[in-house]
Simulated assay, not measured.
Amino acid sequence: MSTDLGTWPEGVARHVLARVETTMAEASRLAPHLAGPAWILAHEQTAARGRRGRPWRMPPGNFAATLVFHPPGGPAHAALYSFVAALALDEALGYLLGPAARLSIKWPNDVLLNGGKIAGILLESLGIGGQISHLTVGIGVNLAAAPPPADLEPGAMAPVSVAGETGLTITPEELLTPLAAAFDRRARQFETYGFAPIRTAWLARAARLGEKVIARTTTETHEGVFETIDESGAMILRTAHGPRAIAAADVFF
């Protein structure tokens, strides 16, 4: 795909705000009034959270934005936009940081720089009775600083920042345009050709593919070799008891 990510995608709105509770809450509030996709970027969040409702602090200068749009298809199809988002973020960061940046994607949708976590992605759907009216894709990136170690859960991957790893200063607005452009292109590819090309591109960027990992669900811990992801986005582990599909888990290296 083209690497020219410097142009804002046509038909996509952009809202840049100084301070909000969370960009995802703001996206949910705006969703019923939007004519098309919209990105909401905030310079400060007062009640940010990560996966499974975990608190998440945002140091000044870091990136916090949410895309809200109406996805085609049902919940299973919408969930695959997690991989679209991770791939788009990887491409946008690569565009800004250059070919020397050692970027990869940790299943399901964390982006790593030099082996440390630089970004996370959170999807939430809006709707009634199993019908999705809108999907929100929240993205946080450590541009200026990584969160302090005290904020991390035990065993979590050490976070890093763009500034700390590369010495580069990138503003949230400078990241937003290539991210929006990359997401728009990958989403169009997904909607036209299905998940297969997204899956192929994602696997080419996957961290620890072919290596041993530990996947912890809310009730179980599985250890095995990360072989691939299937057509539903599940991680396929080769364990001592045979292949196992993991639909949702925290992964540890």
Rank of each mutant, 00 (worst) to 15 (best):
Met1Ile: 01
Thr3Met: 10
Leu5Met: 09
Thr7Asp: 10
Pro9Phe: 12
Pro9Trp: 08
Gly11Gln: 05
His15Pro: 00
Val20Asp: 02
Thr23Val: 06
Ser28Ala: 15
Arg29Trp: 12
Arg29Gly: 11
Arg29Cys: 08
His33Phe: 15
His33Ile: 00
Pro37Cys: 11
Pro37Ile: 05
Ala42Cys: 06
Ala42Leu: 14
Gln45Asp: 11
Gln45Met: 11
Thr46Ala: 06
Arg54Asp: 02
Arg54Cys: 02
Arg54Thr: 07
Trp56Ser: 06
Trp56Gly: 07
Pro59Tyr: 09
Gly61Pro: 09
Phe63Gly: 10
Ala65Asn: 06
Ala65Tyr: 02
Thr66Asn: 06
Val68Met: 10
Gly73Lys: 09
Gly73Phe: 05
Ala76Pro: 00
His77Lys: 09
His77Ala: 12
Ala78His: 10
Ala79Asn: 13
Ser82Thr: 14
Phe83Trp: 01
Ala86Pro: 02
Ala86Asn: 05
Leu87Asn: 13
Leu87Lys: 05
Glu91Asn: 12
Glu91Ile: 01
Ala92Lys: 09
Leu93Val: 02
Leu93Asn: 07
Gly94Asn: 05
Gly98Tyr: 08
Gly98Pro: 06
Pro99Gln: 11
Ala101Lys: 02
Ala101Ser: 03
Pro108Gly: 04
Leu112Ile: 06
Asn114Thr: 04
Gly115Asp: 03
Ile121Ala: 03
Ile121Tyr: 03
Glu124Ile: 09
Glu124Gly: 11
Ser125Ile: 04
Leu126Ser: 12
Leu126Asp: 05
Gly127Leu: 11
Gly130Pro: 12
Gln131Cys: 09
Ile132Lys: 09
Ser133Asn: 13
Thr136Phe: 02
Thr136Ser: 14
Thr136Glu: 08
Val137Gln: 02
Gly138Phe: 11
Ile139Asp: 05
Gly140Ile: 00
Gly140Thr: 00
Val141Ser: 05
Val141Thr: 02
Asn142Glu: 04
Asn142Lys: 01
Ala145Cys: 08
Pro154Ile: 14
Pro154Gln: 13
Gly155Arg: 14
Met157Asp: 08
Pro159Ile: 03
Val160Pro: 00
Thr166Asp: 03
Thr166Ile: 03
Leu168Met: 14
Pro172His: 12
Ala180Arg: 02
Ala181His: 06
Ala181Val: 00
Arg185Trp: 07
Arg188Gln: 12
Gln189Asp: 14
Gln189Phe: 00
Gln189Ser: 14
Glu191Ala: 13
Glu191Pro: 06
Thr192Met: 06
Tyr193Lys: 07
Gly194Tyr: 00
Ile198Met: 07
Ile198Asn: 05
Arg199Tyr: 05
Ala201Val: 01
Ala204Asn: 13
Glu211Phe: 14
Ile214Gln: 15
Glu220Asp: 14
Gly224Ala: 13
Val225Leu: 14
Ile229Phe: 12
Gly233Ile: 01
Gly233Trp: 13
Gly233Thr: 05
Gly233Leu: 04
Ile236Val: 15
Leu237Ser: 07
Thr239Arg: 11
Thr239Lys: 13
Gly242Ser: 14
Gly242Val: 10
Ala247Val: 15
Ala248Lys: 00
Ala249Thr: 07
Asp250Arg: 13
Val251Thr: 13
Val251Ala: 07
Phe253Trp: 14
